[in-house]
Computed example of a mutant assay.
Amino acid sequence: MKKRLGIDIDGTVTRPETILPYMNKDFGLSLSLEDIVDYDLSLLVDIPASEFAQWWLNIEAKVYEESPLAEHVKDVLLEWEKLHELYFISARSTHLLAITENWFKKEGLPFHHIELTGSHNKVELIKNYQLDLFIEDKHDNAVIVHQECKIPVLLFDTPYNQQPLPQGVIRIYHWFEAKAWVKRWIQQG
């Protein structure tokens, strides 16, 4: 039976350290993924949050155009495309939809629908599309989606999402693990 799988983009489909080379270059830092223990990256630079936000606005399109794929994501998504409907829901700003769709096409990634929310609030879209499962990297999003939508959420492990998880939010470490989990979940029906 086909399931509707909801998938975040940044930090799940893309590598979670995607922004670090830009931060390191522009702010004279030498950060690695292990240094990112909070989702709020503005805490890592010695400038006001408003200046960091403006810096991000200036480079976000370039970052999204050049984002590297997470390891094995393409293999899993190509297989899932035949079995499920793939809905990508991201907090990216809505004006970046063409850039995002072009990146998916350039990378050869399948999708049935892409929705950019411009915020981290994904619950209403998940409910509207009647998604059966969601894949995320942001801890509080994962917890809220699970609690509000009553669906399982796979949370990709990163240094910035190490808070405890409620039952129903499952920590995973790579895309092949996500594939295996989804297969077991469907078989258990």
Results as ranks from 00 to 15, higher is better:
V63C: 06
E51N: 03
A61G: 08
D38T: 07
L43R: 14
V37F: 09
W56A: 11
Y39N: 06
D38G: 01
K62P: 00
L33S: 06
Y39W: 11
I36V: 14
V45R: 01
Q54H: 04
K62L: 09
S42I: 12
I59M: 11
I59R: 02
L57A: 13
I47E: 07
D35P: 03
Q54Y: 01
N58Y: 04
S42L: 07
F52S: 02
L43M: 11
I47Y: 05
V45E: 09
V63P: 00
V45I: 09
L44M: 11
K62D: 15
V45Y: 02
S42D: 12
D46R: 09
N58W: 05
V45G: 04
W56Q: 06
S50E: 15
A53F: 07
L44F: 13
Q54L: 13
D38F: 03
V37P: 00
K62G: 07
A49P: 00
W55E: 13
F52A: 08
E51C: 00
V45P: 00
A61V: 02
A49N: 10
D35C: 13
D40K: 08
E51V: 04
L41T: 04
W55D: 11
I47V: 15
F52K: 04
S42V: 10
S32I: 12
A61W: 01
L44Q: 07
I59N: 02
D40G: 01
S50P: 00
P48N: 15
A53N: 04
N58E: 15
D35M: 13
S50F: 06
V45F: 05
Q54S: 04
Y39Q: 06
S32L: 08
E34N: 14
P48Q: 14
L57F: 05
S42N: 07
D38Q: 05
A49Q: 14
I36T: 10
P48R: 14
E51W: 04
S32Q: 13
F52P: 00
L43P: 00
L57W: 03
K62M: 03
K62W: 01
V63L: 09
L57D: 14
W56D: 06
Y39G: 06
A49F: 08
D38N: 13
L41M: 08
A61L: 05
Q54I: 02
I47L: 08
E34Q: 15
D38P: 00
E60K: 06
E60G: 05
D40E: 11
I47P: 00
L41E: 10
S50D: 14
F52L: 11
D40H: 10
V45M: 09
V37S: 12
E34V: 12
W55F: 09
E51D: 10
S32F: 02
I36K: 01
P48I: 14
